[in-house]
Structures are given as C-alpha cells and as structure tokens.
Computed example of a mutant assay.
Amino acid sequence: MKTTNYYNTFIEVADDCPVTKAEIPPVRGEKTIANIEFELLIDNPYEFTSDDVLFHVHAAKRQLKSKEFELEREKFFSKGQACFRSSPLTKRYGWGAHFDGDGMMAIYAVESDEYQQFTKDKGLKQVKAMRSKKA
C-alpha cells in the first residue's frame, strides 16, 4: 500500500500562493476538496494523518458508506496519490501543514506566529507546497 504520510515535516505555502493571510475556503454549492480538508483539520488538529484526510475526501466526494471504507481505502492507496503538497489549502488558501513524529497533522495560517516558528524549526523537514503555475 502506498502512503502520502509525512513525519516531522512542515509544508509551507506555495511560492505562488495568491494570499498573504490564510483564507477559509468558500462554500459554493457542493463541498470542494478544500472545504472538506479544512473542516476536518481545523476542528481536529493532530487527529489525522495525510492518508486519513485524503481518503476522507475521496470517501466524501463519492458518498461511500462506512462499511465500504476498508476495501475502498485499500483500493485507493493501491496506486499512488498526490501528497498534501498539492492540497488547495497549501497552494491557494494560505495554510501550512505540520506533521508530528507520528505523522498526525494540523494546519496553521501563514500569518500566524506558529507558522513562523515551524518555518524556523531545524528539527523539521521543510518542504514547499507545489506551485500552481510552472516557473
């Protein structure tokens, strides 16, 4: 099974992120990937891994029943998935993602003191979210 989990890592917002202050993804009709990720992470810091969040989005978008989760999760991760560096939260909406030693994650607004502390933490692997446009 493939994984998207990070450990002791901080994902900074993308270099071409259009905001300098984090935004809550707007809800317009059906919930987007950004809406689902944001709601899950803002209310539950350090309760989920990246794999958990990505599968939750997959399950929500496909309206899977909980009894289908185990088999569907196995199928979902049998092939590679884009990691959280490609999340709209880190690319577009100004949220950094911190992963602790157990792989559990939380998001932090780009303008927050916590975000700044994570960017300077030499004990964390520092990575950038993927750019939206090619350089």
Rank of each mutant, 00 (worst) to 15 (best):
T3S: 15
T4Q: 04
T4D: 00
N5D: 15
Y6I: 04
Y7P: 00
Y7A: 00
N8I: 04
T9D: 04
A14S: 15
D16T: 13
C17L: 08
P18H: 09
A22W: 08
P26S: 03
P26D: 06
E30M: 05
I33Y: 09
F38L: 00
L41N: 01
P45V: 10
S50F: 01
V53H: 09
L54S: 12
L54W: 13
H56T: 14
H56W: 07
A60C: 02
A60D: 00
S66H: 10
K67M: 01
E68Q: 15
L71F: 10
L71Q: 14
E72R: 13
R73N: 07
F77E: 07
S78H: 13
K79G: 02
Q81A: 09
S86L: 12
S86R: 14
S87T: 15
S87D: 02
L89D: 08
T90Y: 01
K91D: 00
A97S: 10
D100S: 06
G101L: 02
G101A: 08
M105E: 05
Y108I: 02
A109G: 13
V110D: 02
D113H: 12
D113G: 03
Y115D: 07
Y115T: 11
F118P: 04
Q126C: 03
K128Q: 11
A129N: 03
S132M: 15
A135V: 10
